[in-house]
Design a protein around this nucleic acid. Sequence first.
DNA 1: CGGAGAGGACTGTCCGCTCT
DNA 2: AGAGCGGACAGTCCTCTCCG
Length: 396
Amino acid sequence: SRISADDLAALNQQLDYINEHDEHGDVATGDQEINESLIDEVFDNLESNQTAAEVEFEASEAQPGSVLQNQLRGVLKRLLKEINKYNMPLCYRRGDFFDRPPHPVFALRCSLEPTQLYWRKVFIWLPNLLPGCPSTFKCTCGKPLIRNGFNDPIARRVRSMPADYFLLTNRFLCPPRRQNNPGCGRSFQGTDPHILGQLPLFVQRAFPAYITARAAVSKLVMWQMLNTFSSRLGPAKFSGLVSEIQYRTHAETELMYISAANHYRQFGVKQFSAFDDPHGYAGSPPSTPYLKGLFTDYTNANRIYVDRYIASLPLTVASGDHTFAFLKHTGGLKGEPIFTAAYTLMNEHEEVRGHCFVPSKSMTVLQEMFQGVKQGLQDANNLPTQLFYTDSPQRT
DNA sequence: CGGAGAGGACTGTCCGCTCT
DNA sequence: AGAGCGGACAGTCCTCTCCG
């Protein structure tokens, strides 16, 4: 499909419309507050993009595979050749984990075909070719593992910003058919914690993502979430943020494409793929429930460290108070709430030093916590509390 | 928010090629 | 001949997405 004369006319008409109706120059200057919701319009467009992509998807069903599938197939094929020739992928030789597609600027210099602009970076994780790797990886049963080919699908998608990338790894097998010293038959992914654990720590730390069941999320995104979720930015808004940046990246690439076509005087070039066209650019930002799940799992896994850190904080100047607001989000027993309040203890740096759910506002139920905190201060060589602020002092 | 269904990631296993 | 390895594929699991 191409940009038709009709499309161009419609676009010009819309631009004219803005010029004619922007009497205060709001759109141009951005000074004025705009009350009409722009969001509805955006969502409408998204929907129409989606239906458009579906139509295009159905129309192009004859294609052997999507652009990204073909890219990965090509990468793997080349990778095997490189390993054969140089004993390692060329990206390793270059000092890089990533097999990178050409930047649009250079890709467009050679050809005005958009396909390469949909390609993503591919993170190559081949544990047996990494510096510091053991001569053979061991199975959980102790027997040596052998390599066992690659995966299908070839690589998994890692959700990231400004765009997703792929993670390519190989498989290991504890071969049961080995005559001399037969293995247990278990197989591993190169990304398995058991394999990672056999690499030196500095190599382990280079692993760039947290793996989930069907996908993965880059450590960068995870760390951004940890920072933003601790203030008021929640998973829904964060999902929106990632999505926005990914759409933006797509739009910037499209702009480069169109502008290059213009520069090289190429007319009637192929239309750039829609963001979510599965056969084209195939963008798919992470959903809110996915991010929410990730965050909860991460927090659960690291809770012991957080608790330990909190227990080591000082409480030289203390302030304590009850909170009620978020209790309505906690579960109950047969519809009856178990707790009526939460009690929070903060130190002079506004760090939470103690926190517990309480059945009533009585201070007697808090005795155990205060004793625990006192013991904790001693154990961590902190000063005993010197000053205590509270709003309803009681003698207990 | 919850349930249903799709389908992606992975496992288990076999085959055949190459090298020593 | 045995070991190592890549490739293929059926089948399973279970998360993610969609939709009401």
